[in-house]
Design a protein around this nucleic acid. Structure first.
Lengths: 176, 176
DNA sequence: TCCATCATGTAACCAGTTACATGATTTC
DNA sequence: GAAATCATGTAACTGGTTACATGATGGA
């Protein structure tokens, strides 16, 4: 259960329609929790049924604006303070590294170089996100910035890691 | 589709029964791709139906040993070289950080300290894994070691990141 | 003979993806 | 009047989780 909490979190920040939330997912949240349109509408229905959010306004084209309820805030707090029941960590890219021995050394090397290139590009993308806007003293902004910092540091760490593996592998191939 | 490839990868390294694979998942692979018993048996059935693996031996208690087929190796290679269709990155812990503004500053701070403690423990766990066995010159071992290195570096990066956020947050709270 | 371990499977459920489907309003 | 955008929903399918269910074999 977790798109649930992403949606609840956005509505806690401020009310909006499914359509609004979808945009907010695509902008700020895409890097930590991407969501598709159909899933979001479905979840909003369930959240409303459960009384965690309610329709706070109606607009043209059947627009329904939702707002979080007290029960919703309580549920959000509960989730925020229960990291122990997050889903287990899974990483297809790491799984691939684990099995890289099934490819030829040349292919493995090329794969690792691709990881390095990709990580460097991602790192640059985060740098641009950081530099292309002002970061206010606002509380919300602060944690958005903190999440971004995590992106910066992880992409950097991954690029460095790839360099390390490449170097080790090259040493092995050219005989000690 | 990805437990599929984890299982295929293990069988590429060498044949085994569902029960064997389950143990190998729990040992070496748990950190990159955990799997449950029921899912694994189901997947082995599907892989066999698809002709990617085949029963290579029968033992007591209905034991079925599976081995990878040529078609299976081909599929594994295809997946190994197609990182572009990996599932999108999702992280509940990062989502939580993103929404940390919904908690009080004191609670947020405590949460970040918990992340730091946890990351340090995980880092120590990986160090122990590294030091508690010999790493041979073997090709397979090499990539297992590379995946472990990634665990070491990421847990370190996360602990450092948490320290950074904590420091920033403390500065904000004590007035500039 | 009892216990641990070996060994396999099924069913109900939840989360997420892709594709399909429809229509109203605003802007040029 | 046409096109972009606003706006919501459904259906079929895949992957993963928890819980249930059963039984054979080997060693003390």
């Amino acid at each position: 259960v977790s798109l649930r909490h992403a949606a609840l979190g956005l509505l806690a920040q401020h009310p909006g329609s499914g359509y609004d939330l979808l945009k907010r997912f695509q902008e700020s949240m895409a890097n930590v929790w991407p969501a598709t349109q159909s899933q979001l509408y479905g979840e909003l229905g369930k959240l409303a049924d459960a009384g965690l959010i309610k329709v706070s306004d109606l607009g043209p084209r059947g627009r329904k604006e939702y707002a979080i309820t007290d029960a919703g805030r309580a549920e959000l707090r509960r989730w925020m303070t229960s990291p122990q029941d997050d889903p287990p960590f899974r990483s297809a890219p790491l799984l691939r590294v684990f099995l890289l021995g099934e490819l030829s050394p040349a292919e493995a090397l090329e794969h690792l170089r691709a990881i390095r290139r990709f990580s460097e590009r991602e790192h640059a993308r985060y740098e641009q996100m950081r530099d292309s806007r002002e970061w206010s003293e606002d509380h919300r902004d602060f944690f958005g910035r903190a999440a971004l910092e995590s992106g910066l540091r992880f992409t950097k760490a991954r690029a460095d890691w790839a360099s390390w593996v490449i170097q080790q592998l090259e040493r092995r191939l050219n005989g000690s």
